[in-house]
Design a protein around this nucleic acid. Structure first.
Length: 1140
DNA sequence: CTCCAAGTGATTTTT
DNA sequence: TCACTTGGAG
């Protein structure tokens, strides 16, 4: 007999499924849809299993039916036109997460059993492996092949079908965590795999391009998470109505018994094609390949889609049609059709009502979509329904394929047709409709792709119109953009469109006021921000115009210094090397026989503090020394020694950049004047974070400039510890008495709830309650979630679970719109929508560990990860030495790893000799070649010479290479470096990222090293990749995420308090918390652990007092408990249960 | 000069 | 808890 089967659904016990997903509702929905056989879903779940046993009775062999008394009750809800028998078949989905061949694999597999007895045995076995209680789709740390083995051991009547095989994150052939073939995964058991599920993201014709899958029967199921989603994909059988015949039909692939499948349009998926949403680039795989997978707009790797993955594994051309394989029929759910016809949501009352009405009149949904004659459909009385279904059956619809997280769209009627319909208000009835062209295997669907790039095609003279267009800028913003002639202070709260306003203002001056880009200076606080601003300006102004100089204070200073002293090149050293040289200075002073009682660290802090106050060694250091209870003389000596070393080596530290420029500007009026004349229009971002040096630069550069525009938010001042002071912000109106002030208060980022809650934290810092507060009109969840966990580990595990849940566990294609999910609302989340923010970097590690194990993709935003990893650091030092930028720190570092034979003592000897003679490394090496280093043994001298010659050789070889090639070459030269880099995949990843960055600089070694020392996490952080972001609250400034977890909301951490010490600045801590909270767009979670390991000791912790500042009604305290799995040998299988 | 074991102190936050 | 320093033995 002919019947439709949907062999993959879930129960209410699975994550992110509708609460009414029980047998009764499945029974009802199956009839409405026209499905005869439906999988039970989730039979491994104990509660669901007992429900199955209780409500089902055996029917045909291997199939079950609902008990009569239950069925009868349900029948009342089924229209007569749809009434039909429904059979169940034991089915469950397992999520296998494991490592194989060095890669984390995440596969979803469907398992089928013919009877309860065998299923019980299976469940028992799984129970011993992992926790099957927590979720209807259990996550098990076992190999897919092993799972199949277990099943076959129980009975060969059981079978396994790999689920939705192309989804990137969770499937057999997925690009992110899958295999390249069935054989790679199942090895010698591969013959037992006879079917595979195409999933929503692919259709058979895509699959058939892979000849490897020829022997596989492609099946399609709904993977329903709610009753309404049942049968959105399904299979058509014509065989005996029993478990064994169904299995045999698939096994044999006999086209008389397995008639084909009903398929979603794969183009509807979020990741069908490749591209960048932000850059407006959408590519087909061949175009992506042409661009080497790099986005032509932003230069970063494209997000590659499912089609690309198919292309990668395919050995047949697109459009390949196989005659020997089963046909398939593309469908669009009736609700979606109605939704388009009515121009209303699928969940709207009108759509739901008319859906019920139509099936009552015409029969089940599948019947309507495929069998019911068109004339009859017209009788349903829904205008244009007939035409719509006709077009669907003919495949004449328009597809807008999804890409980079954006859902694809289906359009049944073209814009033109809609117009006509509206004009005529009548139906399209043409006589030649009789011929039913379906089944349809040749895809006639028209694809509408905006080939290559759709850029803002704004010509400069159109910009004014664009600026004035109110829908791009609101009144406040427009006001700020157009205001000129007076210095301007823009007070811009979080999410109020700061960058938008600033970039529009810049482009306004360029395009409308004819200001040349050379005369414009834009200063941001981080490289991240300046990159973002450059990118936005580029988009706004188009490619043809040259852009103004966008810099951070440090890069601005460095460029000024470079310009002025082009002969003696300086290098900038990072924090690590600063420490090295400060320590060196400290010991040198000690060696002079001066007794120092203060620890070295104290001097480091004093030196930094002095520099931040623009004090040089000979200036009055008394205030600084007093503060640290140290003698001025001593400080002067150490600080002086440090500066001697640096200047002899041709080195600046971060603070020097500022100090030097301030001194220059304040002492040399000519130089200062030169820059004043050059930069007639100055824009400064994050003005509240200025420190003294930066303030003095601004004052020197623009003492009375009418075109000085500064923007900032005193509530977000969080860098007090490095000398930032809001007073400069507050002083602006005093410094520039004629200045104008504009407030931006309309927030476009977060929900009003999030804004309210975050304001509660800082409101005591606002003495004037009538001051305008940032507000939003975005409505969302009415509370923010406060969650408590037992330990930091369970905090990390639980957050991981929540993320998995919100991602839907299904990967990119869980198109469960209106499902009853309290978190995600109507949106499907992807990993990049989440950020976890914490106070200290170390907290990030526990998340990293847990996520690594759970297979959740993440990126930790941390400078150290990019440049300081062992191996990478040495390679960079080597390159620095060879390029003539090296310092003693580089020398010693390289010595230790490169020539093991030159011992620490020898290199120390060399280093001291270097300092004594005020040699730069370059000079010292040259010198050592000709004259022996005093005190060095002859054999060591020989080794040193050998090393120097080696460096010279490298220099020769590298001469004509690009920087990335040089790096690669150098790390190859030292086996130890190579080993270090290869030691962890994480380092390897960082290294290849570094190579990528280096590639951008080609031969420009100066700029490359400037980037290496001044860049923090810009490129280390890849905005585009599908990963959860882990970073400190400080680093998150200026960013936004749909879902934010602020982790470790505990006393001691927020506000941060060191043991035995006072909290440095509680108000700044509050502002920091405020910054963290306002990163969230839709959901904000504040989590904390009851116990946390501090220095290896378990400490009891309390909820952060800041959380209590948030008014009660905005907080919802939700409780989670983590249960350890019973089995000790799988300690990683920690599971989560939600009580709330 | 090297190796190893015991001991100690460490965690803000960043250009 | 862990990574790095220190000091003693070889």
């Amino acid at each position: 007999m002919k019947f439709i089967a949907d062999l993959h659904i879930h129960s209410k016990y699975s994550r992110a499924t509708a609460k009414n997903l029980d047998l009764e509702n499945v029974y009802i929905a199956a009839q409405k849809k026209g499905i005869t056989v439906v999988g039970t879903g989730d039979f491994t779940h104990p509660q669901w299993f007992s429900e199955l046993k209780e409500k089902l009775i055996p029917a045909e062999p291997g199939l079950f039916q609902l008990k009569d008394e239950i069925a009868k009750k349900c029948d009342q809800e089924v229209p007569d036109s749809c009434k039909a028998p429904v059979r169940f078949l034991l089915e469950s989905e397992i999520s296998n997460i494991y490592k194989k061949n060095g890669k984390t694999r995440k596969n979803h597999n469907l398992v089928y059993f013919p009877n309860f007895e065998k299923a019980v045995i299976f469940n028992h076995k799984l129970d011993r492996i992992g926790n099957i209680q927590s979720d209807g789709r259990p996550i098990l740390g076992i190999d897919s092949k092993h799972l199949l083995e277990i099943m076959l051991e129980i009975t060969e009547e059981a079978y396994l079908v790999p689920a939705h095989i192309w989804t990137p994150w969770f499937s057999l052939l997925g690009s992110k965590s899958g295999f390249d073939s069935i054989e790679e995964c199942f090895e010698e058991l591969s013959p037992y795999i006879f079917a595979a599920e195409t999933g929503l993201s692919s259709d058979p014709s895509m699959n058939r391009r892979v000849s490897n899958l020829d022997r596989i029967t492609l099946i399609s199921n709904s993977d329903a998470h709610s009753p309404m989603k049942l049968g959105r994909e399904a299979n058509l059988f014509d065989t005996g109505l029993d478990y064994y015949s169904i299995k045999k039909a698939m096994e044999s692939g006999d086209s008389e018994q397995f008639l084909g499948t009903f398929e979603f349009y794969p183009e509807e998926g979020k990741y069908h094609l490749d591209g960048h949403r932000k850059c407006n680039v959408r590519f087909r795989p061949e175009e992506s390949k042409k661009h080497n997978g790099i986005c032509p707009v932003c230069g970063k790797p494209l997000t590659l889609g499912v089609l690309y993955r198919v292309e990668a594994l395919a050995d047949r051309k697109e459009g390949y049609v196989s005659s020997k394989h089963h046909p398939y029929y593309n469908i669009v759910p009736l609700q979606e059709i109605l939704s388009e016809l009515f121009k209303m949501g699928t969940q709207s009352k009108k759509v739901k009502y008319s859906y019920e009405m139509i099936i009552q009149k015409l029969g089940s949904e599948f019947d309507i979509l495929h069998n019911v004659p068109l004339d009859q459909i017209e009788s349903a009385g829904v205008s244009n329904l007939r035409k719509a279904i006709q077009k669907l059956r003919e495949g004449k619809i328009t597809l807008f394929p999804g890409y980079d997280g954006e859902f694809g769209k289906i359009q049944i009627f073209s814009a033109e047709e809609i117009k006509q319909q509206q004009l005529q208000k009548s139906l399209f009835v043409s006589p030649e409709l009789q011929k039913n062209t379906y089944p349809n295997n040749t895809n006639q669907k028209t694809e509408q792709i905006n080939h290559s790039i759709v850029l803002n095609k704004k010509t400069p003279d159109k910009i004014k119109n664009n600026i004035c267009k109110k829908n791009e800028l609101n009144d406040e913003q427009l006001n700020a953009v157009l205001s000129e002639g007076l210095p301007l202070l823009i007070v811009a709260g979080p999410g109020t469109g700061k960058t938008l306003t600033l970039t529009h203002k810049i482009s306004y001056f360029m395009c409308e006021r004819g200001v040349s880009p050379e005369n414009i200076l834009a200063v941001t606080f981080t490289n991240k921000a300046s990159q973002e601003m450059t990118a936005r300006l580029k988009r706004l102004l188009g490619d043809s115009r040259s852009l103004p100089f966008v810099a951070t204070f440090h890069s601005l200073c460095f460029s000024i210094l470079r310009e002025l002293e082009n002969k003696n090149q300086h290098t900038i050293i990072d924090e690590d090397d600063q420490k090295y040289f400060r320590k060196e200075a400290y010991t040198r002073v000690q060696e002079k026989g001066i007794k120092i009682f203060h620890p070295e660290k104290l001097f480091s802090r004093m030196i930094v503090a002095a520099k931040q106050n623009i004090l040089e060694p000979l200036d009055n250091l008394k205030p600084i020394a007093d503060e640290y209870d140290c003698s001025v003389d001593l400080l002067q000596k150490v600080y002086g020694e440090y500066q001697n070393i640096l200047s002899a080596q041709g080195i600046y530290d971060y603070e020097d950049l500022i100090v030097q420029v301030v001194k220059l500007f304040e002492t040399d009026i000519n130089i200062c004047q030169k820059y004043r004349e050059r930069y007639t229009h100055i824009f400064i971002d994050e003005y509240q974070d200025l420190n003294q040096g930066q303030y003095r630069i601004v004052r020197a550069l623009a003492p009375d400039n009418k075109n000085l525009f500064v923007i900032g938010d005193p509530d977000q001042s969080i860098y007090g510890f490095r000398g930032s002071d809001v007073q400069y912000f507050k002083k602006f109106l005093f410094d520039y008495p004629q200045a104008k002030i504009i407030n931006l208060t309309r927030n476009y980022r977060s929900t009003e709830t999030i804004l309210q809650a975050s304001f509660h934290v800082i409101r005591d810092q606002h003495d004037n309650p009538s001051e305008p507060r940032v507000f939003s009109e975005i409505d969302g969840k009415k509370t923010i979630s406060v969650m408590n966990f037992s330990t930091e580990k369970s905090e990390a595990v639980a957050i991981g679970k929540i993320i998995e849940q919100m991602v839907g566990g299904l990967g990119m294609h869980s198109i469960d719109f209106g499902m009853a999910d309290n978190f995600t609302g109507n949106r499907d989340m992807s990993f990049s929508d989440f950020a976890i923010l914490y106070r200290t970097n170390t907290q990030g590690n526990s998340f990293g560990d847990v996520f690594q194990n759970a297979g959740i993709p993440y990126q930790m935003v941390n400078r150290d990860h990019a440049f300081l990893k062992p191996g990478i650091r040495e390679t960079l030092s080597l390159l620095r030495i060879v390029s003539g930028f090296g310092s003693c720190a580089d020398f010693q570092r390289v010595m230790q790893i490169f020539e093991k034979k030159i011992a620490l003592k020898t290199s120390s000897l060399f280093k001291n000799w270097c300092f004594q003679n005020q040699f730069s490394l370059e000079q010292a090496l040259n010198h050592a070649l000709r004259f022996p280093v005093p005190g060095m043994s002859r054999s060591n001298q020989l080794k040193l010479t050998e090393f120097i010659n080696k460096m010279a050789n490298f220099k020769q070889t590298l001469q004509n290479m690009h920087i990335d090639q040089r790096l690669l070459f150098l790390c190859e030269q030292a086996p130890k470096i190579r080993r270090l880099i290869q030691q962890s995949s994480c380092t390897e990843e960082s290294f290849s990222r570094l190579l990528e960055m280096a590639n951008f600089y080609q031969n420009n070694i100066d700029d490359f090293f400037e980037m290496v020392s001044l860049c923090t996490d810009v490129d280390a952080y890849d905005f585009k990749s599908e990963k959860v972001t882990l970073m400190t609250m400080h680093a998150a400034k200026g960013l936004e995420f749909p879902v934010v977890f602020v982790a470790g909301c505990e006393e001691g951490l927020i506000p941060y308090k060191r043991a035995e010490q006072e909290i440095t600045d509680i108000d700044e801590e509050k502002r920091l918390f405020y910054v963290a909270m306002t990163r969230a767009k839709e959901h904000l979670f504040l989590t904390h652990a009851t116990k946390r390991l501090v220095f290896g000791k378990s400490m009891v912790r309390n909820l952060s007092p800041f959380v209590y500042e948030i008014e009660n009604q905005l907080r919802s305290h939700e409780k989670f408990e983590l249960k350890k799995s019973k089995k000790e040998n799988h300690p990683k299988q920690v599971q989560l249960e939600l009580f709330s």
